[in-house]
């Protein structure tokens, strides 16, 4: 039976990844270790001293870890949707080579996003292992937190790919990170509860996909009641994923099928 076209793209991405996996694994391991040490343990000791009841009822390290897991998934998804796509259609033009084969535009987009999902899974699994080593949660809790993180990764990768295919210079991507990804990383309840935000900004946090991932990851890892029903959060993130994929396919078609 013929291999589905999108899977051929995933297989090719995996082959390319084999050349860089060592460096990439070190990064995905070091990142959580450094963040959890500096923010969770270091800064956390100050926070915990001032809040005997903890943040949302848990110690700061425990509060931070699942949120950071989800935020890391978002960043990984964003990087896959941004720099990878820019290299594909502009810097290396490998997409043009792929589209000269039986692979279609739709299959290319689905393959690229599936591979982004695989990358998010790898990064978050390593992160989850580190979280367990830090004694924040059980292995089951950490694994459960990977699921919503995956969804956040996809809900980011798809629209970011749709954005990237529409920009002509990497300055557009720098701005996307500067004004989009980094603020989301900082203000979506990852480092502090959104109840600390000024009243006016709180609804904005609810609109951000990462917020829903953070809430669900905390719920999955620690059993903390989420601010939004997980069913609604999953539906919301799926909407971003499906809508983003559709938007990316349209953009790919406009850019590459002309």
């Amino acid at each position: 039976m013929a291999t589905p076209l999108a899977l051929r793209v995933v297989e090719a991405e995996a082959r390319v990844y084999r050349r860089v996996w060592k460096g990439s694994v070190v990064t995905s391991f070091l990142n959580p270790v450094l963040y959890l040490l500096a923010m969770g343990v270091g800064l956390g000791s100050l926070v915990d001293r001032n809040l005997p009841d903890g943040v949302a009822g848990v110690g700061y390290l425990a509060f931070l870890a699942p949120g950071l897991l989800a935020a890391t998934a978002m960043q990984t998804g964003a990087a896959e949707g941004a720099w990878k796509v820019m290299a594909g259609f502009k810097w290396r033009k490998t997409y043009q080579a792929v589209l000269a084969t039986p692979v279609t535009i739709e299959a290319l987009v689905l393959g690229v996003l599936t591979w982004a999902g695989v990358r998010v899974l790898m990064v978050t699994m390593v992160f989850a292992a580190v979280v367990v080593v830090f004694g924040v949660t059980s292995p089951v809790g950490a694994l459960a937190a990977v699921l919503p993180a995956m969804l956040v990764g996809l809900a980011t990768a798809a629209p970011v790919a749709g954005f990237t295919i529409r920009v002509d210079h990497d300055a557009g991507l720098t701005n996307l990170f500067r004004f989009g990804i980094v603020p989301m990383f900082l203000f979506s309840g990852t480092f502090f509860p959104v109840s600390q935000l000024p009243e006016l900004l709180r609804p904005v946090a609810f609109a951000v996909p990462l917020f829903h991932g953070v809430e669900m990851a905390r719920w999955a890892a620690l059993g903390l009641a989420p601010a939004v029903s997980p069913v609604a959060s999953v539906a919301y993130l799926l909407a971003w994923t499906v809508g983003g994929t559709w938007w990316a396919i349209r953009g790919f078609r406009r850019r590459l099928w002309r």
Partner: peptide, 25 residues
């Protein structure tokens, strides 16, 4: 064979051919 070489610069000669072959299944 396009006008502009769009090979994957990060890969080896044989790997470029391998991946392309897989696109054709």
């Amino acid at each position: 064979v396009p006008q502009e070489d769009n090979l994957d610069m990060e890969l080896t000669v044989a790997e470029n051919l391998y991946i392309y072959g897989r696109y054709f299944d």
